[in-house]
Structure formats: C-alpha cells, structure tokens
Computed example of a mutant assay.
Amino acid sequence: MERIALRQWRDSDLEPYVAMNRDPEVMRFFPARLEPEQSRASLERQRRFITERGWGLWAVDVDGTFAGFTGLSVPTFAAPFMPCVEIGWRLRREFWGRGIGFRAAQQALAYGFDTLHLAEIVSFTAAVNQRSRRLMERLGLVRDLTGDFDHPTIPLGHELRRHVLYRVSARLDNAGAFGHRAPLP
C-alpha cells in the first residue's frame, strides 16, 4: 500500500502544484484555473499558516511524490455557518481513484478532532461536484440541507455559485473513528 503523509510544503512542490492548478479537469469545479503566480502565492500562504499555527492545508506526499493538498482551513468569506474550520483537498489527476484523497482526509480529520479538539469540521463544494460530495459522505460528513448557500465570491448566474454544506461533529460516538493515523509535522 502506498505511504501517504501530510507535510509542510517544499519549494520542490511548486512546479507540480502549478501544473495541478492549471489542469482543466482538476479545476473543473472552480471558477478559474490559477495562474502560476497565484499558485506560488497560495503555496507560500499555506506554508506560512502551517508554520504560524501548526496546521493548514498540508502537502500530500505519496511515496515521496507531491500528490496535491489536504487539510484544514478557516474560510475568509461571510456565510451563515461561520466561524468554522473546513476540510478541503485537491489532488493531481494521476492520483485520482486510488483512495489517496480519502486516506489523506482521514488524517486531517484525525488532527482536527484529536489534536485541535474541534467540536465540528465542515466541508462545502459546488452542488454539481459529485466527486467531492461522495468523498465527504465516505468520510462520514453529513449534508446540512439547511446550510446550502450561494458562494459570495462566485458571480450571480455562474453554474458553480450554489454550494452544498456538509458537517461532521466530534460526538462521543465518533471517538477514535479518525484516530491511529500517522503523526503530522
């Protein structure tokens, strides 16, 4: 089985990160692909968040190769369910369909509940993004039917504006469900 680790970003991640963010299929459910400078700024921002607070959107390492990112973030737009901590992910296409996103996200959830002692973690995506929705459900997140929203940074009329909200709580019956994962940096 492949070794999957969440780690701090490295300079060597930039080239594959730029390529991932330029891939039209990877970015299909985002309003636009990122320009190289936007990817560079994003990498530096994530590296800074991890350095400053010890967590964030970590680089996903699969057997020593940069595969994408998975982790926890604090959304910066206004929505009725704020404040919150969100779990998110994006993987290079060659890593799709191998359970890597699921296993990496399990590590991020474990960190959020077991180390940060969060009461809840949310995730959201464009309503049409069935792949991410299936992953959320596989991870045990439950759709909050009252939480669907129009993403304020996506223009009116855009097919990706409507978003669905999923939640998972650190209830007692979840105890240990995300534990026993490899430690994070």
Rank of each mutant, 00 (worst) to 15 (best):
I4D: 00
A5T: 09
L6H: 04
R10N: 07
S12N: 07
S12M: 03
E15F: 03
V18A: 03
R22M: 13
R22E: 14
R22H: 06
V26C: 13
F30M: 13
F30Y: 15
P31L: 04
P31M: 04
P31H: 03
A32W: 08
R33E: 09
E35C: 05
E35T: 07
P36N: 08
P36L: 09
E37I: 07
R40L: 14
S42N: 11
S42I: 05
E44W: 05
R45W: 05
R45Q: 08
R45V: 04
R47N: 05
R48I: 01
F49T: 09
I50D: 00
E52Y: 03
E52A: 13
R53Q: 15
W58I: 02
A59R: 03
G64F: 04
F66R: 03
A67S: 09
L72P: 00
V74W: 02
V74D: 08
T76F: 10
F77M: 14
F77I: 13
F77D: 08
A78E: 15
A78W: 10
A78I: 14
A79E: 15
M82C: 13
C84E: 06
V85R: 05
G88H: 07
R90H: 11
R93A: 12
G97C: 07
Q106V: 12
L109A: 08
Y111I: 03
F113K: 04
F113V: 07
D114W: 05
H117S: 11
L118D: 01
L118T: 07
S123P: 03
V128Q: 15
R131Y: 03
L135V: 08
E137C: 10
G140Q: 08
L141N: 04
R143Y: 02
R143I: 01
D144F: 05
L145A: 13
D148I: 03
F149T: 05
D150I: 04
H151V: 08
T153F: 06
T153W: 10
P155H: 08
P155Y: 01
P155F: 02
H158Y: 10
H158F: 09
H158K: 13
R161I: 02
R162Q: 15
V164S: 09
V164R: 11
R167Q: 06
V168P: 00
S169M: 11
S169L: 13
S169Y: 12
R171C: 06
L172Q: 12
N174L: 10
A177G: 14
P183F: 07
P183N: 07
L184S: 08
L184M: 14
P185L: 12
